[in-house]
Amino acid sequence: MTVPTRAEQAQGWRAPGQDAGWLNPIRERFLLRLLVRKELRVRYRGSMLGMLWSYVKPAVQFIVFYIALGVFLQLSKATPAYAVYLFSGIVVVNLFGEIFGNATRSISGNGALVAKIYLPSQLFPWSSMIVALVHFVPQLLVLVVGALLFGWLPSPTALVAFALGMMILVIFTMGLGMLTAALNAAFRDVENFVDLIVMVATWLSPVLYRISMVQEAIDGTIWWWLYQLNPLTIVVELFHVAFWRFSPEVVEAIPADPSLVLPGEPFGLWWAGLLIAVATFVIGTVVFERSKRRFAQEL
């Protein structure tokens, strides 16, 4: 096999096995699109509902949580527009869980491709992330419609909060996903731990309850600060600011219940969440880059 000359490399030729590292998803956009299409086709092969599953799962989650917590535990009485509050958090943890889980299994799940032909390994977790975003869009549309029914109107504050939340969530989760994808190629137990993390994250973020309830219970302790610095807590609160906090029912209830005002609002500790997300992404990318040459042997 001949090695490309310097002239050929200058014209865009690269030796086999060489790639652009973390820039692969940008440079290999065509391959990335092919992998996204492949994942979508495989996922819904033989399915009668297809993309409708993007609505079914969050709808069932919402109904179960709303009845159990909103009706039985009467959280809906203490929280104005509780349906919007609840669904704002559900869409966050669903997107977190799907990106995290899919990215973790992206290398082991594509073992035949990884072991037999050369493809930039970064494309697999990134394609999983894009598929998760495709499934997130229908849930977001339902959230927007629901918020509008409660009198919510788009505003610059809502758009900034949503953009910050999405940025932190995607960067943070992709960092975790790249890290666990590399580990899962060698140790299959990792994907089971990821499922546990997603389950715990649902309850350790203010999805089902108000953050003021946590503050009342552990304020003044280190646990309160750690809870606030949880990137998922920050993202869920940003989504609440975007879709719930400034709805008419909530604004009207604030004089009677000041606890509806979120800590550090409107955007809270977004800067801390972004810093943690970027640090996690860098660590995950470095570990992935150092591990990717062993994937074929480990699979």
Rank of each mutant, 00 (worst) to 15 (best):
N230M: 10
S76K: 09
V142R: 05
S128K: 02
R6L: 10
I197Q: 08
V170E: 05
E8Y: 06
I117A: 09
G220T: 02
V64G: 11
A115F: 00
S54C: 13
R294M: 09
A163I: 03
I67A: 15
P248E: 03
S108F: 02
V92Y: 00
F187L: 12
W271F: 12
L141W: 01
L69I: 15
L86M: 11
I63F: 13
L52W: 12
L183P: 10
F172D: 09
I63C: 13
V42I: 13
S54Q: 06
N102H: 10
L133A: 02
L274H: 03
S76M: 06
S108L: 09
W152D: 00
I168S: 07
V3S: 13
V194H: 00
I107G: 00
N230A: 11
L164N: 01
P156F: 07
V145N: 01
V261S: 08
G46P: 10
G175R: 04
G21R: 03
P248C: 07
P120R: 08
F288W: 04
T5L: 07
S205M: 10
I283K: 11
A115V: 06
G268Y: 01
R105Q: 11
P156G: 05
F124P: 04
P138Q: 02
P263R: 03
R14L: 11
A83D: 15
I168D: 03
I90L: 15
A181G: 02
L153V: 14
W224H: 11
T2P: 11
G21C: 05
S106F: 00
G264S: 04
E39M: 08
P58E: 09
S76W: 08
R105L: 12
Q18H: 11
S47N: 02
Q61V: 07
V56I: 14
I168E: 03
A103F: 01
S106V: 01
L119C: 09
L113N: 00
I90R: 07
F65Y: 14
A59P: 14
G177P: 12
V3K: 14
F281Y: 15
I211V: 12
E39W: 04
I171H: 01
L164E: 01
L159D: 08
G109S: 00
R45P: 10
D19I: 04
G175L: 08
I107D: 00
D219E: 12
F72S: 12
M167Y: 10
V236K: 08
L31V: 05
G17F: 01
N102R: 07
A158Q: 02
T2H: 13
V241P: 11
P266Y: 05
F239V: 01
A256Q: 11
F62T: 12
L204N: 11
F246P: 08
